[in-house]
Nucleic acid binder design. Structure first.
Lengths: 348, 348
DNA sequence: TTGAAAGCGATACCAG
DNA sequence: CTGGTATCGCTTTCAA
């Protein structure tokens, strides 16, 4: 499995070091360091500085980040864990912004897949990099022990985005249940009393899909109480294939359902096509609600009613990480980012 | 811009080091190293080994990757550069696979945004990490000087994917012109003689869109020769918004065009919707060809005719990187991956 | 104004 | 079987 890459007896043609630069410029390594880092105001004569810079240039000298951070005691690495598979356009954009924001603040982003086992093996692997901050996105595997392992190994701050909060780590809550709940509430308000809820069979989506399902159920349950019962929610597991969508459509009229929460806009599109092929009216016979408010939702006919959830801007998050790094021992913060609302269009 | 993150006087509560473990276990650091790395066969007694492991466990000891690679002379880092913005589902999936493949081979993937300026500043920044390999995707900014800078600083192999080949670097060519050419050839074969070619106004897509346009033109030109002239290709710049799509649709009948290469499936979807809203028959009055063969292309009605281009599997590419790292001085390889073909469906 | 030297953490040689 | 010790490349204090 995880092995070190073996190099067949390392004959790398030694990269130039600051010592080489020093030799070439006829100064000491200390001076090289001063010059190249603009440290210590006017301590070095302009002549010497020029000589050093020239030497560095000619040799193609580039400082060695690992050596530097070993000396400095911190790496400036922000370790970002992301799910192995998921990745919608929404998340992808967010990631790009975040990377840019962190880069502008002088951090190096390292992306890791999220935890595998439930032991703290991945936390250990992360800790080896001595990241300045760890930011997990939608990760189920991080434990309080993992957090404390990281903290003890020098990580200034651990921040979870979208998962369950973990003791010792700051948390940005992005409650997916609200997405399902909003959709459900909308459908209930329109009079639907038998609602299907799509759950992708792709298990890597569980982190999103199950909470969304739970939200649908919760909203239905509370409505059932106030409305005197009679609300049915049915979980429907679905492959992301035309075949399974067609199958669902063909059994629709017998199912007794009148509405469907489709997990997200892409699944909603899949189902919309299947329903239209089967001659089932949308929204007349089947009301469809998507989620994520992608461009896609505006391009289908009928346009998709969908649930919009505000993601924090990547830059804002980068700023937050930076702030938390500066105050590593502040009490853990928990921000609730959930603000799902329904965008009503034509499909429900 | 890029500054080092300042930590307000570093009082990090010292992470445990191998010396701490040694002290606690009553052995030397050397022994700790042997035990924890399973080095040196049966050189250490089972008792000692147990004591060392216990000590490491109790302290929550995690080795320091930077220190290790400083000593070892190589980092096992594969530096992956990706465009700041682009990111389709295709590319995203490919990236996940690649990361997984590299991880399984013992490498650490670090993702960087691609080069900004045309100087070699980004190459320098990359070199600071002393990556074992550098893999650029669709990057215009890498120069031969940048490559040699990397090589001199110890990078075993530099590989470009999808951009222009760069002297000194291996190249995986993914010629986007073939995509446009395939689409164009299909339309010409169907008798179209006036073809529009969409170019997104999003400049971050230029790396894809301009070559695709060039491909459309090239195929049209060579057809014009053999057919005795009379083929027109019109470049059409388009925002990814409903408004600009509607505008294009409303002027369609006056344009004299009969077919449209839409850049990719998402743009094709956008245009399909706009044409349908405007009452223009697809493919009757407007033949539409997408690209990338996304699931999306199968979900529209009519289904989208599209161009499929095989991406290398992420795992195959990981294997290639691994092989090239083992033989850093092999002559540069250039693999041509282009194999675009049209998937004929209903829109053209 | 510059240089010498200590030390960050881990590893691997060579003694013992 | 185990322990010194030199070393990787860089920064920074202290002396000169």
């Amino acid at each position: 499995m995880t092995q070190s890459p073996q190099h067949p007896h390392d004959p790398t043609p030694a990269a130039p070091t600051s010592a080489d630069v020093a030799r070439r410029a006829g100064v000491s390594r200390a001076t090289v360091s001063y010059v190249l880092n603009d440290t210590a105001g006017g301590r070095v004569s302009e002549q010497t500085r020029a000589r050093v810079r020239a030497a560095a240039d000619e040799l193609g000298y580039v400082p060695h980040a690992a050596a530097r951070s070993l000396r400095a005691g911190h790496t400036g690495i922000v370790l970002l864990t992301i799910p192995e598979v998921v990745f919608g356009p929404l998340f992808t954009t967010f990631l790009s912004e975040l990377r840019a924001g962190l880069r502008d603040r002088g951090y190096t982003t390292v992306i890791y897949g999220d935890s595998h086992g439930q032991d703290d093996a991945s936390a250990r692997a992360w800790a080896e990099l001595r990241p300045t901050a760890v930011l997990t996105t939608v990760d189920a595997g991080l434990t309080p022990r993992g957090v404390s392992l990281l903290r003890r190994s020098g990580t200034r701050t651990v921040l979870t985005l979208g998962g369950r909060p973990v003791a010792g780590a700051h948390a940005l809550i992005l409650d997916q249940r609200e997405v399902g709940a909003a959709a459900s509430a909308h459908l209930l308000a329109r009079g639907h009393r038998a609602i299907g809820a799509i759950v992708p069979t792709d298990r890597s989506l569980d982190g999103f899909s199950l909470p969304r399902l739970a939200g649908v159920r919760a909203a239905a349950a509370s409505a059932a109480v106030s409305a005197g019962g009679g609300v049915r929610v049915e979980r429907i597991d679905l492959d992301y294939t035309e075949e399974s969508a067609a199958e669902l459509a063909s059994g629709w009229r017998e199912s007794g359902l009148t509405a469907l929460f489709c997990y997200n806009d892409e699944y909603a599109h899949l189902l919309l096509s299947a329903f239209q092929d089967a001659g089932i009216q949308v929204p007349g016979e089947a009301a469809l609600v998507g989620a994520d408010d992608l461009m896609l939702a505006r391009l289908t006919r009928p346009r998709l009613t969908t649930v919009h959830q505000l993601l924090p801007s990547g830059d804002m998050l980068a700023a937050l990480v930076d702030r938390l790094v500066q105050t590593p021992d502040a009490p853990t913060e928990t921000h609730d980012l959930a603000t799902a609302h329904v965008v009503v269009r034509d499909s429900a």
